[in-house]
Design a protein around this nucleic acid. Structure first.
Lengths: 212, 212
DNA sequence: TAGATTGTTAATCGATTAACAATC
DNA sequence: TAGATTGTTAATCGATTAACAATC
């Protein structure tokens, strides 16, 4: 029986950057890549990289490092980025449109199949080749296409209403770019993104720099 | 002599969400708001909210909570969101355009005054009323307008070159949305955003949910 | 072989949570 | 007053870092 892995959020968050570097090494035709090298490219400690990579199950070779191709596969599989995830976008504003067109997401198995917006002008159009529907088609399309994942980019004040709609349509995972803390039943997972928090960090770093 | 505050990154990152809730309380006309209430809206522990708010210097009243107006001011001042920060956007693609138009940033003192892009079609146009210039105007405009802050939304492979350009133009802070770890001199602060890391978190949460 | 690197076990560091006196 | 809440001090928890034997 497989032991329940302990999830370390900071480690998981660093994996995508390791994947990028390892993929670049693969392109270069390298056989092995060491934690030391990954660490130096990202200005991290090698021990941290080794600890993080361990959660994917990869086994390295002393003196050489990690086999590049296996490492790519290990990270990709750990993140389930080796399976296509059909997703919908809810709220086809500027941010949502940018996310649909984001080139990197393709390689993460993130595949937008439909967008929904309450603006009548947008229904019937396409954004980055993804069809936009009116919100009242959401329920139907989600069950018809068996979608599990939704990206939420709507104004804060309708975030909860749309979340409720998504949940009742059968959505199981919500990537929430509104800054509203939406409530969901236990079986629905939510990942909240808050752009302001990054900006807050930048501002505080500047303040510290000025004081120094 | 003011003691050097210890910066707790997680605390700083939570402040913007406290600010939103406190501003809403201000709109409602409330005099006081308790950490208990803020915590329950965000599904956090009250003790965590009190600890976080303490870094802003706010002093609450036992039994009542924090004076709403003072709390808004304390957070806003701690983050330096009470001063206008003129900023430039480098890379006027979809994400960059979305960021320029993001309504919340206005209230954070983030004021875009120019955008730069190497595409000749974009130079001379406007994005959300912000003029777009060709990249070779960057140096000139930055020093002319005394800009300290740049938002970087360019492809990964030119991130370092543009960072070097920004640094030599005198930029002091870079909000980096590329997934490349750019190198800068010590006096330049950088905040890296990685959209993929949030998606990685969502994927791992889903996996755990499925196993449970 | 010698030296670089891995993976494990232990130590340190920092963030969160708990306990509780003070207080309005 | 009684009870809710603050702010401080202490305890716990988890993440990072250090130390080091194993190894190719």
């Amino acid at each position: 029986m497989p032991k329940v892995k302990v999830l370390s959020a900071p480690s998981v968050r660093r994996l995508p950057s390791y994947l990028l570097i390892t993929r670049a090494a693969l392109e270069e035709g390298l056989q092995y890549i060491s934690a030391t090298r990954i660490a130096s490219e990202l200005e991290l400690e090698p021990i941290q990289v080794r600890k993080d990579l361990a959660i994917t199950g990869i086994v390295g070779k002393p003196k050489k490092g990690y086999p590049v191709e296996e490492l790519v596969n290990a990270i990709v599989h750990f993140l389930r980025w080796d399976e296509v995830n059909n997703a919908i976008l809810v709220g086809a504003g500027h941010l949502g449109s940018a996310l649909i067109g984001f080139p990197g997401f393709r390689s993460h198995g993130l595949n937008f199949v439909a967008a929904f917006d309450n603006s009548p002008q947008k229904a019937g159009t396409r954004i980055h080749d993804v069809p936009v529907y009116s919100l009242d088609k959401l329920q139907e399309k989600v069950s018809e296409m068996k979608i599990a994942l939704a990206v939420l980019t709507v104004p804060r004040d309708i975030a909860q209403d749309l979340t409720d709609l998504l949940v009742s349509a059968g959505i199981l995972a919500i990537w929430n770019f509104t800054n509203f803390k939406v409530r969901t039943p236990e079986h629905v997972v939510v990942q909240n993104e808050d752009l302001s928090s990054g900006f807050a960090m930048l501002c505080v770093k500047r303040r510290i720099m000025e004081l120094a």
